[in-house]
Design a protein around this nucleic acid. Structure first.
Length: 417
RNA sequence: CGGGGCGUGGUGUAACGGUAGCAUACAUGCUUUGGGAGCAUGCAGUUCGGGUUCAAAUCCCGGCGCCCCGACCA
């Protein structure tokens, strides 16, 4: 894409009403726009990141056997009354609205009720199980206090998967598999070594739930890490569990962390309330065992910014970068322009995603913008590089510069990880 | 929801109760071109509603909005 055609603009100064690093950088770089407290729009570059995050998640969910759906945000009262989650006394984060005839509706803050009701139309027999529907969809939560930029919003994207299993054994096997899929996701985002599976309070059907917590000063949670086992315990249960659940070691290290994922055993809570059953091999009705598996793609994007960016701006891992390459033309002589344009076409033909800074600006401004946008590789085409028949390639995260022969450039870029 | 802070051009900031200024961005022209260039000209502002006062960005009351701390948070 030609940067001269990109309608978003970078700014030199961070907005005064944002303190969090993620919002400051994403707004300065023109990735997002703040609409109101806790509500952000995604602009072209930001949306490219969000879509890539979503695609990584999709990939891992599909490998797990997940099937993508897209449920509605508008919710009918009846299903929520069956689980006693409609009244504002029970759930204080509802956004509610009404039809013209005064029928009450809610804007979904989660989808257990809707999906469980929906699955009643499709699950009859043990042959229909297990099933793993998931979606990436906007959730609405009327938080008393939105905060930390895109980390805690009132309207935000969420991936929620729900598992429907025949029995506890089948459920638990899937639950364990999901942990590995989650870890893959965080690895691919560049957060693997900072993300810990964390024991948290479990609710009705199990002692624990599991969170995925990424160590970050921007985090709202306190976790206690066992370095030996690479797992952690959330502060909310540290009283009952003050040693490592795996090795029983007591040397736990306290850190602030961001909850980037959460998996839950739901047992039969929803299948009971909404009467979701199947007939087993003997024709006997059985309750479906459920689990839920959440990830906030927006929060995850914010966590990547908090964790990987530096003083000069954003730093994107290849998998979720809006483009793989930032091609920067330095100087506006005709031969430079032509060479940059040719390289742009060559990279595009090789199916490499390129942002081409073809703007007629001074080099300093282009480099500053390039650092701010944070694409993994910057290729400079200038009179200097023309003379040497090599391109200057700078790696954003390390600042390391390599000179790459013109004939090798596509290869070099494609191999970069 | 409790506590605290704050609302001035698009953005960031200044102004004792007395002429709303600076920077940046944007537009035009000339110069400049490997780390946010220079000159000139131009465009553009006091969150809203009341009140006090000869006079309000400034003081008072209220609304709306934003930020932070805490509480809350499948």
């Amino acid at each position: 894409m030609y940067q001269s055609k990109l309608f978003t603009k970078t700014r030199k100064e961070a907005p005064k009403d944002e303190v969090s690093k993620n919002a400051q950088l994403l707004i300065k770089a023109g990735f997002i726009n703040k609409e109101m407290a806790g509500v952000y729009s995604f602009l072209p570059l930001g949306l490219r990141v969000l879509n890539k995050v979503n695609n990584v998640i999709r990939d891992e969910m599909n490998k797990l056997g997940g099937q993508e759906v897209f449920l509605t945000s508008l919710q009918e009262k009846a299903n929520w009354e069956k689980t006693d989650r409609w009244s504002d006394e029970k759930v204080d984060i509802w956004f509610k609205t009404k039809l013209k005839n005064d029928t009450e509706l809610g804007l979904a803050f989660t989808h257990e009720e809707a999906l469980t009701a929906l699955m009643k139309n499709h699950i009859r027999s043990y042959k229909d199980l297990p099933a793993y529907p998931y979606q990436i969809q906007t959730k609405f939560r009327n938080e008393t206090r939105a905060k930390s930029g895109i980390m805690r919003c009132r309207e935000f994207p969420m991936k929620d998967m729900y598992s429907f299993s025949k029995d506890t054994a089948e459920h638990e096997a899937f639950y364990e598999k999901s942990k590995a899929a989650y870890q893959n996701i965080f690895n691919r985002m560049g957060l693997g070594d900072k993300t810990y599976i964390t024991f948290a309070s479990g609710g009705t059907f199990s002692k624990y739930s599991h969170e995925f917590q990424t160590v970050s000063s921007a985090g709202e949670d306190l976790i206690y890490i066992c370095d030996k086992c690479k797992i952690a315990v959330n502060k909310e249960i540290i009283q009952e569990q003050n040693k490592c659940p795996a090795c029983s070691g007591e040397n736990l290290r306290e850190e602030k962390a961001v909850e980037v994922g959460n998996i839950f055993n739901l047992g039969t809570k929803f299948s009971d309330a909404l009467d979701l059953t199947y007939l087993d091999e003997k024709g006997v009705p059985q309750k479906v065992i459920m689990g839920s598996y959440g990830i906030g793609p927006g929060r995850l994007m914010g966590t990547v910014v908090e964790t990987l960016s530096d003083d000069n701006g954003l730093v994107w891992p290849v998998e979720i970068s809006p483009f793989r390459v930032h091609l920067v033309q330095v100087g506006d002589k005709d031969d430079v322009k032509k060479a940059a344009e040719n390289l742009y076409e060559e990279l595009c033909k090789a199916s490499i995603e390129v942002l081409f800074d073809d703007r007629d600006l001074r080099p300093g401004e282009k480099f500053a913008d390039s650092d701010l946008l944070g694409l993994p590789l910057r290729i400079i085409v200038s009179e200097k590089t023309l003379m040497s028949s090599e391109y200057e390639v700078k790696e954003r995260k390390t600042g390391k510069v390599s000179m790459v022969k013109e004939v090798d450039i596509c290869d070099f870029v494609k191999k970069y990880k």
